[in-house]
Design a protein around this nucleic acid. Sequence first.
DNA 1: GCCGTTTTCGGCCCGACTGTTTTCAGTCG
Length: 580
Amino acid sequence: MHTYTNAELAGIFQTIADLLEIKGENIYKILAYRRAAESLNNLAENVNDVAQRGELQAIPGVGKAIADKISELIDTGRLQFLDNLSEEVPLSLVELLRVPDLGPKKAALFWKKAGITSLPELEEAARRGKLRELPGVGEKSEARILAGIEALAHRTTRIPLGRAYPLGKQLVEWLRSQPGIASAELAGSLRRMRETIGDIDLVAATENPQRIMAAFIEHPLVEKVYAQGVTKTSVELRGGIPAQLWLHPPAEFGTALQYATGSKEHSVRLREIAQDQGFSLSDRSLLFPDGKEVFLGTEAEVYAAVGLPWIPPEIREDRGEIQAAKKGQLPDLVEPGDILAELHTHSTWSDGQASIREMAVAARERGYKVLAITDHSASLGIAGGMTAEDLRRRKVEIDQVQAEMGDTLQLLQGAEVEILADGRLDYPDDVLAGLDIVIASLHTGLRQGREAATRRVVSAIQNPHVDILGHPTGRLIPEREGADLDMEAVFSAARQSGTALELNANPARLDLSDVYARRAKELGIPLSVNTDAHAPDQYSLLFYGVATARRAWLEPQDILNCWEPGQLRAWLRARGEKRA
DNA sequence: GCCGTTTTCGGCCCGACTGTTTTCAGTCG
């Protein structure tokens, strides 16, 4: 019995798809492997559990053949099919596909005609000018490949949302300010608000693309121009972030924006529906068999054309949104304005940079009705954690600020208490009982094994004083994976005790992830979207948390922070009474 | 290889751009 994470299995099937593609296998077979891999990545439940129940074929895109392969991997830790395949096609060829503009056909060519099987060999051949001797490869291609290899070496794979979004927004606003631009929007994974993005996609509507493109490549953020066309231009921004701008006439803006937003999988589904209804859908238009072409200026018209309501970009991932839209059952997604409470903040009593009063005033200005001050507990020395005595003194200050705020803002006495290495909490129960709200979080010992880490988190969840599990996995994007947790065990414990799970809004965390948060919702576990603000300006990070909550299909009733103060206090009180 | 209120067999999305080409193949999103 071998255990794999969903991502590991997905990676194996992606590799199989890559190898088959280099081999020149039927494209639809390859797509089937890719679809199965994508599906595994989107699966919130661990695939080992699904396998144990014998329900692998219930996973979308997994049929008998792939289900058998998953079972073989879990049973034996190996896959005969892959072993045989890699005898035929060297595994190391897969890394060539990471080079931009180098696909399976070129990889096969380099391998068969020049004996190249790895990235270093490819680089060497390109340097010596050997590639240009091959059919269909010229000097330009050779230079591009060399440049691509160099770019790979110093590119941080995917870009965190928090880094890309401000840049994207700046460019969109610049576009909108240009004369002759009818509209401009973010597109791609950035508009869908994925936690990391590959490049910044922009779409704008204009009748004068030449002039806009010319101005775009002169923008101060643009460092390099990869490719420039009339409808599409690819550039690299300062800091090595790739960006693309598509320009379309205003009449085509709807189809263009839909197309550029994706996801690819979502758009494939839309096109299938269009095909069924007897027309084809492209980024330009709807095309009917009699040659009639229909242009659509808004996305809503595109969706209406295939008989669907407009679908919010954040859920366009082919994770059931098309089916839900067909049935008129799209979720009523949470919006920033629905958030009435911030339940995870720090003040100068631990590692925050602002006083309780400053945090409270700023919260009131944002229109919040409830603010919890949740400073760190003592053992987190690096963050100036508070002793029980500190808590008593802080209470006096919170009470003072509360008196100043009157009934405009309700302050909650809280703490973010460490979950210690052995699973105990950093404050004794009688101290926890004296607080209005308790968040329990992991900050240390994240490299413990799966069993120990899970036991730790589960025991914190089961402590009746704990209301919210803070940033549950402890991951940091992009550099740290987070604790290796058996998430199903965590969910099951949370469901049983009614403990809420946090969706930490900091773009470096976004923890729980969209996939896990959606799973939690499905299980009826309450979620709490918080910024973990250490200063008033960090309240604005809420935007990223809400976006991720939307990706998780969360509605206001699923989130503590959207509840009216009375309902929230009643929930906290009820948990308090259960403790007593 | 997957999948089905048309189907268990025969489909499976579409177009732009680039480079190396005299009409197209490969890559990308």
